[in-house]
Amino acid sequence: MGTSLTPEFWERFAVLLVLAAGLTCVLTAAFDGLAVRLLRRRAHSTPPPTPYRPERGDHRLSAHS
């Protein structure tokens, strides 16, 4: 038993499709803007301090070797 798709169905389908596409565009733009802001903030912050690494000539030999 087949059913036919009524004009009312196609109207609602078209409205929902346009709304979904619009909402997708708006949310994508909002999240892209948020991501760009976070990346800029991270790029402008000061880098973490680097730990001190002694050079080869800085350390002494053990008395037991």
Rank of each mutant, 00 (worst) to 15 (best):
A43D: 04
L23I: 15
V18A: 06
Y52W: 00
R53P: 13
E55Q: 00
G33L: 03
L39G: 02
T50P: 07
A20H: 11
L17I: 13
L16E: 15
V18D: 05
A43R: 08
A35K: 08
H64M: 09
T28R: 11
G22C: 01
D32M: 11
E11Q: 03
L16N: 09
D58P: 01
A20K: 00
T24D: 02
S45F: 11
L27G: 01
A35V: 01
T50N: 07
L19Q: 00
G33V: 03
E55L: 14
M1I: 00
A29D: 02
A30S: 04
T46S: 10
R37L: 11
A63G: 10
L16S: 10
V26M: 10
T46Q: 09
D58A: 00
L34D: 04
T6L: 14
A35I: 11
A21K: 02
R40Y: 08
D32F: 04
P51A: 12
R37T: 08
V18H: 05
L19Y: 04
A35C: 06
F31K: 09
R37A: 06
A20N: 09
P54K: 04
A20L: 02
W10I: 06
L19F: 05
A63M: 12
P54R: 08
R12F: 11
A43W: 09
F13S: 06
C25P: 06
W10N: 04
R37H: 00
V15M: 01
A29I: 14
R37M: 09
W10L: 10
D58G: 05
L61S: 02
P47G: 07
L23N: 14
L23H: 12
R56C: 06
A63K: 11
F31W: 08
H64Q: 09
G57W: 01
F9P: 07
D58V: 12
L19H: 00
R12I: 14
A29W: 07
L19P: 03
L17C: 14
V18S: 12
S62H: 11
R53E: 05
A30G: 03
P49C: 04
E55R: 12
Y52C: 12
R42Y: 08
A14V: 06
G57E: 04
T24Y: 09
T28G: 10
L5A: 07
C25A: 00
A43L: 09
T6D: 10
R41F: 03
F9Y: 11
H59T: 15
G2N: 15
R42V: 08
S45V: 03
R41S: 09
L34E: 06
P49F: 02
V26G: 01
A20E: 01
T46D: 00
L27S: 06
C25V: 14
V18Q: 03
A63H: 13
H44L: 07
P51E: 03
G22E: 09
A21V: 15
T28A: 05
E11K: 15
A21F: 06
R42P: 03
E55P: 00
G2Q: 15
E55A: 14
V26A: 08
L17R: 15
M1W: 02
A43H: 12
A14N: 02
G57M: 13
R60P: 13
P54I: 02
G22S: 06
S65Y: 06
G2C: 14
C25G: 03
R41D: 13
V26C: 07
C25E: 11
R12S: 13
L61T: 13
A30K: 07
T24I: 03
T28K: 06
R60M: 03
